[in-house]
């Protein structure tokens, strides 16, 4: 029904002000709660992946032992890094951009992820040595502290490269993560604090390198099968 004509005095309605303030505050509190709830769900989601990572680490260690006693046929030629874990880096990277995320939990998840990558790298090198394979891989070191101008662009390049060569293994590490195993790897590869840094064929390269430059540095890429269709997964965490 159409409303009646309306008019009233303009004397302040303090009760309405208070009620509106209370409702608005409630809406804000609800919005914060909802946001927090979904962020916790995301953390839980990643934690479940983290459990899988733990199992994968155990599996890796077991495979190391098996490697000593079995032939190359028994060792999977595929990456031990399961496809389920591939998008984890992207998810971690996304969570880093969100407010209201527990940074300690996030950092712990990143440590686990980095540890798995190191384990996978070691296994791959063992398999390669035993089975006389020539693995093609890149180590990528980045920083999220705001002190690396080209890290974002380097991330895009490596994403493009992994799209182009699905068999290429790219291991990405947050240089400042504070993980002792990672620190040891940085020392072994003699990676300086001049990021972004790529380690290709045991040699560090600093600064932004595009796809063409990497293809020149790593001619073995030409032997890898190129992607017939595009893929959207990536292994580097930014």
């Amino acid at each position: 029904m159409p409303q009646d004509p309306v008019v009233n005095t303009r004397s302040a309605r303090w009760s309405s002000y208070l009620m509106a303030f209370a409702i608005t505050a409630l809406i804000f509190a609800t919005a914060l709660y909802v946001s927090n709830y979904f962020n916790n769900r995301r953390i839980a989601d990643i934690q479940s992946t983290q459990d899988k990572i733990s199992i994968d680490i155990l599996s890796l260690e077991t495979q190391f032992e098996l490697l000593a006693q079995h032939s190359c046929r028994d060792i999977s030629e595929n990456s031990v890094l399961s496809t389920e874990i591939q998008p984890l880096a992207q998810r971690l990277s996304y969570l880093e951009t969100q407010s209201n995320v527990n940074q300690d939990e996030l950092s712990q998840l990143k440590r686990y992820y980095s540890l798995l990558q190191i384990k996978d790298l070691l296994l791959m090198q063992h398999v390669a040595a035993k089975c006389k394979l020539k693995p093609v891989f890149i180590l990528y070191f980045y920083s999220n502290k705001g002190d690396c101008e080209d890290c974002e662009e380097q991330g895009y390049v490596l994403t493009g490269l992994s799209e182009k060569y699905p068999q290429l293994r790219i291991y990405s590490f947050d240089y400042n993560l504070g993980l002792s195993a990672l620190r040891t790897m940085i020392d072994i590869n003699n990676v300086q604090d001049n990021l972004p840094a790529l380690v290709i064929n045991d040699r560090p390269y600093y600064g932004l390198h595009d796809i063409e430059e990497i293809e020149k540095i790593l001619p073995q890429l030409a032997m890898l099968k190129k992607a017939t269709s595009t893929r959207s997964t990536t292994t580097q965490s930014r």
């Binding site: 974002e152 662009e153 895009y156 390049v157 994403t159 493009g160 490269l161 799209e163 182009k164 595009d210 796809i211 269709s229 595009t230 893929r231 959207s232």
Partner: peptide
């Protein structure tokens, strides 16, 4: 930037 450095990826997940 993504397009410039990584090319165009049409797959959407």
């Amino acid at each position: 930037e993504r397009y410039y450095y990584a090319g165009f990826h049409s797959k959407f997940n």
